[in-house]
Design a protein around this nucleic acid. Sequence first.
DNA 1: CGAGTCGGTTGAAAATCACAACTGACTCAC
DNA 2: GTGAGTCAGTTGTGATTTTCAACCGACTCG
Lengths: 155, 155
Amino acid sequence: MRTQPAVECSIQRTLDLIGDRWTLLILRDLFRGVRRFSRIQEDLGIAKNLLTDRLGTLVDADIVERVPYQDRPVRHEYRLTEKGRALSPALLALMRWGDQYVSGGLAPTELVHDDCGTRLELQPWCTTCNVPVVPTDISSRPGPGRHTGSEDIRV
Amino acid sequence: MRTQPAVECSIQRTLDLIGDRWTLLILRDLFRGVRRFSRIQEDLGIAKNLLTDRLGTLVDADIVERVPYQDRPVRHEYRLTEKGRALSPALLALMRWGDQYVSGGLAPTELVHDDCGTRLELQPWCTTCNVPVVPTDISSRPGPGRHTGSEDIRV
DNA sequence: CGAGTCGGTTGAAAATCACAACTGACTCAC
DNA sequence: GTGAGTCAGTTGTGATTTTCAACCGACTCG
């Protein structure tokens, strides 16, 4: 268990929720359309009791919802909520990093823009200048949710 | 330990490397400029033996490098390599998600574009159409690194 | 009726983690 | 030159988590 109190950082808060060894993998399966307990379990090789526990946590956090897909016997599947779907940029960023640095630049799966078929990149975007922004052009500042004098992040 | 063989997915490969409870938090500290063993240790509240282990893994994976910052006694600090710095979009995406859904829309820390001060968003970008792309406009296809018939990802 | 499926629960063994104590190389104050 | 302090760890032990296998209940299908 974490001994420190939660710091004023959304990365920490996020990882406290979904940052364990299995949760992001479960979410990836849900994005892929693998929504049933047994399918996820065999796809990931996760222990059943852990999958029960992790899905419960995700449902409690409103990232995933449990919806019945049949009666007699009633059985449920797990679907991403809007909050869960909002994690797609994070998953995509992890995937693109893995493509470049773990899979040797050869993506096992590419994501493409429906309209034109172009392979998608993921980068910070400035909505004012309407240009992509590289890490060296980024600064940080305290936001409206800042309560204490914690340090800034440089990316 | 994972019982399944690594599947053809860069998310899984990435999470096998950095997807444990502490590693992304350590990387966040390195992005923030917290680079010394004892500073990271007290900032995160991680056990020292675990921090030793995680930093070793990151150095082995060439995500972080161990560089001396003084002699007598020689001491080292940990710096992100280019491979490590390339994780910034993933950290940023997790941070933005946390801002919106865990910190109640109030970001403790905002990232801004140096040139204009606009708060940064992170979204998939189509370099051909020169427009941001929403999840519903994304498709997936097997990429050059695909070896087996694994399933596609929908984000 | 018997076998099979799905979505779990339970219990025990194995792995991992947290915490405290200790170490080595060195500095700095006295 | 002794004593306290710092930094970056290592080691040992007990607590927590994870894994693995077995079992269960509700139901369907043959």
